[in-house]
Structure formats: structure tokens, C-alpha cells
Amino acid sequence: MNAPKWLKTPKGYVTISIAAFLFIASIGSITLMGIVNSLIAIVAAFVTDSIYCALKNRKSSKDSTVITGLIISLVLSFTTPWYMVAGTAVMAILSKHLFVYKKKPIFNPAAFGLLLSIFLFHPGQSWWGAFGDLPWWMIGFLLIGGYLVTERVNKFPQVFAYLGTFFLLLLLLGLLEIGGAADALRPPFINAALFFSFFMLTDPPTSPAKYQNQVVFGIVSAIAGIIVYAIFGGLTYLFIGLMIGNIYSYWKKLSTSKAAERRQMRSKTSRRVISG
């Protein structure tokens, strides 16, 4: 595939958007450390992916590996030590290959790696690439990139269901004065939620395609995330919410596949009866 054609693919849209975020956030933060971390994450992800694919004789998806590395480097603080960045990328890529259904990952690789890294490394995720430490109006960049990507991957129902439920539940928490709803609705947490919903929740292999299932997926992910936030606070709520949503998507694929198998069996049996 040539470059202009690739740029029009969903992966092309995502790569260009998050690479632009990396560039803008680096200028805003006046540092090159984030770019260095992104290179570390991409190299670690590439090496892990290449070794695994060579050992298991599988086909490697280079662009999704780059996307995973970029997302990891935008979420982890740019002051995060290199071994934590590399470790997170390695765990993300391994999850992509180890937890699969019909050759597709069950969990969003970047979210899985970032969630595990919180427990293993305590890396201090800052979501700096979502402009969490920069002026509030920079959220405009997130919305522009986010809407372009969501439109391209056809996931608006999912994103709207997620954000609608997420904000509604935070409004309820705010009215009841439970948990840190005020924090979650303000930078840097609102930046994190928007980046997450536009670029991680919408990952095509780990989320449903049908509109009806997209809506359920969005609602389930938001409810699970807000429950975790209300009880524990911290920074794991977005990722845990997505993991629950990913499990719903997996279950949906599994049940659809089993129903199709049953239909196939029934038609074979009826054909045998007719011919016999």
C-alpha cells in the first residue's frame, strides 16, 4: 500500500493524529523527553512483536505496533524512566498475542500494558500527550483529532454512549458529593477521558462493529470505570472500564459465533434427513 492510500486508512488517521499530539505536546511542554520516550516505546514494541511473530510464525502488524507505542508514550509521564516505558510496551504487545480470539486481540493492547504497569512499576501516568498540563483550550486539538478518527472508524455511537454515561454518572456523583467527581471533570483527567474515548475505546479489533453493540459496549465501559473511580479513585478507572467492555465484546463475538455454528449444524442435520 502506498503512503497516500495508507493515510486514508483508520490506522493512518490514528497514527497521524497521535503523532501530531506528540509534536504539539512536546512544544507545549518545551521538552524532547516525550519524543525520546515514544522512540523507546516503539522500539520495545517492535522488538517484542518481531520476536514473537518469528517464534510463532505469525504475521506482524507494524502500524498497530507503532500506534501502541505512541499511545503508551503519550500516557506515561515524559519523566518516566526508559525501562518502565519499554516494560509497558512489552506487556502491551504480549497481551496482543497471548489473549486472542480468532487471531484478534481481546483486550486493547495499550490499555492492558498501561493498566499492568500501574501495579508493577508505579510509573506516574500523566496523560501529557492529551495536553493534561497545558492550557485548557488545547482540548480543542483532542476534539478535532478525536472526531476525525471516530468518524473514520465509524464508532460515534460507542463514543457518545461512553461519554454520555460517563458524564451523567459523574454529575450524579457530584450531586451526591461522592468520590472526586470535581477532579474527573477537570484537566488533566478530562483530557485523559477524551483521549481515551477517542483513541483507545474505538480500537476496531477490540470493540464491536454493530451500532447496537457499540452502545452497550460504551455504557458498560463507562459504568465499570465510574464504579472503580468512585470506590478507589486513582488512575486505573479508564483502563479497568475498557477491560470490562473488551470482555463484553469478546463474549458477544463468542455467542454470535456459537449461534452461527449451531445454525450450521442444524442445517447439515436437516439436509441429511431430507437426503436420507
Binding site: L163, G164, F167, L168, L170, L171, G174, L175, E177, A181, A182, D183, L185, R186
Partner: peptide
């Protein structure tokens, strides 16, 4: 909905 949540939590913030 976001704006409603934001203003509701203004005092807490």
C-alpha cells in the same frame, strides 16, 4: 451533561 456536572462540582473543586 458535562457542563451540568462541571457547575455542580464547582464548589468541591
Amino acid at each position: 451533561v458535562y457542563a451540568a456536572g462541571y457547575y455542580t462540582t464547582e464548589t468541591q473543586a
